[in-house]
Amino acid sequence: MENLADQIINGLQLGLMYALIALGYTMVYGVVKLINFAHGDVFMVGAFVGYFGFTQWGMSVPLAVLTAMVVCSALGVIIERIAYRPLRYAPKIAALISALGVSLFLEFFSSLKFVFGPNYRVVQRPFEEVHWNVLGLNITNIQVIVFVTVLIMLALLQFLIYRTKVGMAMRTVSVDHNAARLMGVNVDNTISMTFAIGSAFAAAGGVLYAIAYPQIHPFMGIMPGLKAFTAAVLGGIGIIPGAVLGAIIMGQVETLTSAFLSSQLRDAIAFFILILVLLVRPTGILGRNEPDKV
């Protein structure tokens, strides 16, 4: 039983990191109806920037996280500007192909020797991992950092989206670009803002991931990216609480499968869920089939 409880905590740690990535997928989908397949690679860039921050640039962990968030916000905005905005009103498949192109570009450009280099790097943690025994549960300081950081970020996002003008503009853009324009919303800026926020969250996720699973490489964003995408679809793409819910489920499924079935089945089951959701309930857990409005 204790082992099960420990695994659930491990799964929660993984799931919360997926949530940080999944939010970016779902927010971007909300405002431009596009799956940003380069999002997992933004997560990878965030992990690298954070790693350089606390290993080579002498930054504290919080500062390294903030730096990664700033760099990736800029990266997200640039990606949208160059690769998606010119295709915004083109057929969806064009932007989707563009997204795959950006993803491959980031992966292979990062692999160049003068960028991040093609090799795996072991992350030297800036602090020791400490194990605590709380009421019989095995908890680490890293888990506490992940939980606290993610909860703070979720609260900030909730505030931003439901209590600020920018958030209100984002919600209107997600309904209808032209209706938002008629209110005086600068739709282009709002979309850039959404990419910036989504990318910053992925960056924070990347740095936490690098600290929790201390190994990074230019292709590290693919799997967490796909899992987080699955989480966003599972919860209902475009729905913010859905992304968090889906991510928590994915984290549990993945961890419990590795612990009690077989770690080889882990990814297979994760993507089986994606297929199942698409077949059975494509709108996701929290999604509703809303009738088209006249």
Binding site: M168, R171, T172, V175, A179, R181, L182, M183, G184, K293
Partner: peptide, 24 residues
């Protein structure tokens, strides 16, 4: 002039089909 700036000039357009924001 882009649409979002025309609003500021004092012109308000209530579009066909209402186009209210149902999620707000």
């Amino acid at each position: 002039v882009p649409a979002h700036k025309i609003v500021r000039m004092g012109l308000s357009h209530v579009p066909e089909g209402r186009q209210i924001f149902p999620n707000l």
